[in-house]
Simulated assay, not measured.
Amino acid sequence: MTDTIPVFDGHNDFLLRLYRAPQNRGRLWLEGGPGGHIDLPRMQAGGMAGGLFAIFLPSPAYPGGPDTLTRMPEPPFTIPLPPPLEAGDVAGAVMAMLGHWAWMERAAGGAFAICRTVEELRAAMDRETVAGVLHLEGAEAIGPDLDTLHVLHAAGLRSLGPVWSRPNAFGHGVPFAFPAGPDVGPGLTEAGKDLVRECNALKILVDLSHLNAAGVEDVAAISDAPLVATHSNAHALCPSPRNLTDRQLDMIAERGGLVGLNFGVFFLREDGRDDPQCGWEPVLRHLDYLIEKLGEDHVGFGSDFDGCVVPDVLGDAAGLQGLIGELRSHGFDEPLLRKLACENWLGVLKRTWGA
């Protein structure tokens, strides 16, 4: 019998599920299924030892927008971006999700731990406690004075994406489109550049996922930390603007960063469709390509669980050891599997956080 290989995952949207159904949070977190991809029982069943949990502020319905962000139209398509969020829409949602985040640890009775350092991550994993790290996807909750960034850091924030596709005070993201590239619009604003510098000072990871090409260039020019895309794939294999071009992959490799493989089928399939009946083949193709471009020390997983459609052969977090088994059959040896599943993430967080 093969030992379970622990998995650290770079991105999930579980907090959004709690935010949308707070009356059911006990069932959603502690009992698990049906629906969604992630909860405590399924993480434990799949050997998911930890991950980055995103605070994501959903946009209200808008003209021309998709019915749901987890499904996309039949390609080719171009969907208008959501307008910027109004300031009044932000603060309450962030506080609600922070409350759910703290509750998750209390409710788990020692089975889940909020972590702020790599030392805390490793200690939690050693005692077989699922380890969680707080991430902010889209910085609308933060004002140009950056005071809220310090408040969130004190609350445990250790990873931040300046934008989620829609524009905000800090920069511009990529559209919902296929086929398309990320070279659209201007990059970071002056406030966005200040945000990156302050994240560097606080040792908060700056996530390149969702940034447009100019924004990625700006982060690379300003930041003194490793370049990381928590949940993105290879544009050469799937021409979604959410995926990374070869130039961007080269930049990440040069800076000792990491790319977390996104399990979303419309970021994996070369035809851009959201049909989950695709088997393991697109997952393997992207992993092979990312390892070729970045090296085996700079690739991990960034599932996007609860934020996308995943291959039916994976299913949900409980299927992660099935993925490990498929990678083993693909020819990946045990040291490489452990790097991809967990150690590369812990390494880049150590290089970013310094502890």
Rank of each mutant, 00 (worst) to 15 (best):
I324N: 06
L40A: 11
M125W: 14
A169C: 10
D39W: 01
K193F: 01
G171I: 05
P282H: 06
P63E: 13
D306C: 04
E270N: 06
L202R: 13
H37R: 12
K293A: 14
A111I: 08
G10A: 07
P276V: 05
P82F: 03
R127A: 10
L16G: 01
G187F: 13
A234D: 03
P73D: 06
G46S: 08
L188H: 08
W103M: 09
A49W: 06
A229D: 02
E334M: 12
A169F: 11
P60L: 07
I38T: 15
L268T: 08
V259Y: 00
I291H: 03
D312E: 13
D316H: 10
L28K: 10
F170N: 07
R242K: 11
P282A: 03
I252N: 01
L244P: 00
G88V: 13
G257W: 00
K193D: 04
V310G: 06
G132A: 15
E198W: 04
A191Q: 05
G35R: 12
A341Q: 04
E254Q: 12
E120A: 13
A225S: 15
V310C: 11
L195K: 02
W103S: 08
G185C: 10
F332T: 01
E296L: 11
F263L: 14
R25Y: 05
W353N: 00
F8N: 00
P162T: 10
L15H: 03
G109P: 09
M104H: 01
D306S: 07
I79V: 15
G181P: 07
G92Y: 11
G215F: 12
L249Y: 03
L337V: 08
P82S: 12
G295K: 04
H135E: 15
L121F: 14
L340H: 01
